[in-house]
Computed example of a mutant assay.
Amino acid sequence: MTARVGRDRPAVVVVLTHLVAPLAVFYGLRALGAGPWIALMAGTTITAIETIFTAVHRRRLDTVSITVLAILVISAGSSLVTGDARLLLVRNAAGTALIGAWLLVTLCLRRPLLFDGARMFQSAEARQRWDRRWQGSSVFRRALRVLTAAWGAGFLVDAVIRLLLALTLPVDLVPLLDNVLLVVTVMVLLVTQKIVGAHYRNRYGLHLRQGSSDQRED
């Protein structure tokens, strides 16, 4: 089965339309002699079309879709006024900054984002077990909050690096490095998550995987 983002958005589609296709279009148009602004805008259009199509198909605009479209419109409009292609590059830093900030904000809410994010990929029965673990284990709640904080901080660091790349390096180099940075950031965070998970498993007998049962609860 294809991995999914949300419940009906194949992850491969998101990767293709938000990462691979814009990169291919940008470098393809640059090779054909197009200016950096035109090449970046063409790639951005693919992302916007996919986001709008998904919203129409689902008959609703979720927070993620609204955020993506807002960033695209603001960055495109600003760069159109100034003629500066770098403003289109900065949108990626804005996107990861918003993700990181929202992850941290959810620490102040009833449940952190990682809890609800995990539920999106579960069956109804698995969601019930997940909810019971949240209600019954303070260690489980603390672990998910720690992981949410780690992912939030990681994306904020990613945003700072991405902003520096966009403002200092040659425009033609930044789109490629943006994608490389995303892979590095996610890999580092996954390793961090594995280390944190091992700590809670060894110290508390807590298994964070969705299908696992805790050996002891607090």
Rank of each mutant, 00 (worst) to 15 (best):
S75D: 04
T82Q: 02
I66V: 15
I99C: 11
I161G: 05
Q210S: 14
L181K: 00
V146H: 05
L104W: 09
V183S: 07
R91F: 03
R132N: 11
D8R: 12
L169F: 10
A76E: 06
L208K: 06
F121N: 14
Q122K: 11
A149P: 00
A101E: 13
G33S: 02
M187Q: 14
R209M: 05
V191I: 12
D84G: 03
L80W: 08
I66P: 01
R145N: 11
R209L: 08
A198C: 06
V183D: 12
R162Q: 14
V180S: 07
D8G: 03
L177M: 04
L144P: 07
T106S: 13
G77Q: 00
A143Y: 11
D8Y: 06
A11W: 01
L190M: 14
V157Q: 02
G33N: 05
Q128R: 14
L182K: 00
R7A: 09
H207R: 09
A159K: 01
S212C: 04
I52R: 00
R129G: 00
D214Y: 03
L173Y: 09
P22A: 03
R86H: 07
G35Y: 02
T45C: 07
V157C: 09
Q122E: 12
L190V: 05
S137K: 08
I195A: 11
A48Y: 03
V20E: 11
L16I: 12
R30L: 03
L104H: 06
S65A: 13
V5L: 14
G6E: 02
I195L: 08
G117W: 06
G211W: 12
V56T: 10
T106V: 04
R145T: 08
L72N: 15
Q135A: 15
A24S: 08
L107R: 08
R201T: 05
D131I: 10
L147S: 09
D214I: 02
G77N: 00
E217W: 13
I195P: 04
R141P: 01
F140G: 05
I74D: 02
N179G: 09
E217S: 13
T44L: 07
I71L: 13
Y204G: 06
L87C: 01
Y200V: 05
A24T: 15
